[in-house]
Design a protein around this nucleic acid. Structure first.
Lengths: 220, 220
DNA sequence: CGAGACATTGAGTGAACTCAAACGGCGTGG
DNA sequence: CCACGCCGTTTGAGTTCACTCAATGTCTCG
């Protein structure tokens, strides 16, 4: 969280995140339509957010891990617009939004932080739209894996190994494709020697090659 | 903008939006990478926001009209992440973000408003992702037209007629398809008697039918 | 009136979809 | 401890929708 505050201030901020909540795997943190009261900061665990499509299917909006904030979608209508389900046992900080707003007024650094978190989500979704609109199935999967491994790496996990917490169907929904297509894309990347797949384990064998799939020229 | 403030307060708020800026058709309001200083509230005119894809193409992120706010994407990195170009002569309020934040601290109602605007953008993009991921070309076009006509109607324009300010290519990019496919989708809807198309003029002939295309069951 | 940009239409291809079957791990109960 | 059944995943075959490439049509503006 934001830094550069003295001890007394820090204590005040701690009050915002005083409450904790445990969510067991498979349980909902909040559901679509439920009244919005709080944002949640994930301490541990892994979440999936999704909405029901008009025709009764599920559309996955995102996957969230430790350090990320969920519930931002609820602000605009005072009701959450999506479901948040724990894909593994999780522990979250409950941050009543009224507290967040109140303290934001008092601490510009917190205010700025909140704004950045929301802006980041907007930009993230921008790039998702770009990806789904323009990329082919393997490219999407490559982007997905790169993003995941990068976020995990930033949290101290391996740079080259992933244990997926979500099903192929979840991935498919998230990436705008069908589960069979996801499976085929995994197989293809595996056949090419870029990754190694065994069920939900994914090993990155050739990071450069994976990046090259996403952006053929300028493979930084 | 937010209401429920006395006269003196209103004056203070007016200071935020004191500066105006004219943008001629085809001109950029801001460009990707440029330093972020302000949000912009559109007074009149019509904008398109877009980013360049790695392979040099343009991905349209959205279309904005009077009363809407652009520039939110710039907060997170202090640099705009997209280009904003005027599709018709426009007039915007320049709102220096530092002023917005400062006054947000003073006026909770403004603070709440800012948060809602950002949250709305997040939810909007959620539904865009859902649409691009799940719908077929005609459905996407139907959603696009319904959304556009609804926003225009809310601003006092016709409920059944649209003059498109963007090209087929822009629409295609926005909806995650190719311009030829957009054209064919227009033709198809036209052949079905649902809409009437003459270049950039679109007349809605059968609103119910259009809604039904988006959501076959429960055509409210 | 002509040039250029934008839009439509056509034909053929290809990527992702649907439907269907086989496979594999994992947990449960015999 | 092994057999069974279930669920998630993989693989296969055939189809469809949107894409590419190309030509034609139409509007706008100098």
């Amino acid at each position: 969280m934001p830094i550069g505050l003295d001890k007394a201030d820090m204590q005040k901020l701690d009050e915002v995140v005083a409450t904790r909540r445990q969510v067991k795997q498979g349980e909902l943190l909040f559901r679509s339509g439920e009244e919005f009261k709080s944002l949640f900061a994930i301490r541990t665990g892994f979440f999936k957010t999704s909405v029901a499509t008009p025709d009764g299917l599920e559309q996955v909006m995102g996957f969230q891990m430790a350090g990320e904030i969920i519930g931002l979608d609820g602000i605009v209508t005072d009701h959450y617009s999506c479901n948040a389900v724990a894909l593994e046992d999780a522990d979250v900080c409950v941050m009543p939004f009224s507290n967040v707003e109140e303290l934001s007024r008092e601490f510009p650094v917190l205010q700025r932080h909140v704004h950045k978190v929301m802006s980041r989500e907007i930009v993230r979704e921008n790039s998702m739209m770009m990806m789904i609109g323009n990329m082919r199935s393997e490219e999407r999967l490559a982007v997905f894996l790169l993003n995941l491994v990068q976020r995990l790496y930033a949290r101290g996990f391996s740079q080259s190994e992933i244990i997926l917490r979500m099903s192929r169907e979840d991935i498919a929904s998230y990436l705008g494709m069908k589960l069979e297509t996801v499976s085929r894309a995994f197989t293809k990347l595996s056949d090419e020697g870029v990754i190694e797949v065994k069920q939900r384990y994914v090993g990155i064998l050739d990071l450069q090659a994976l990046k090259k799939i996403v952006n053929p020229r300028a493979c930084d």
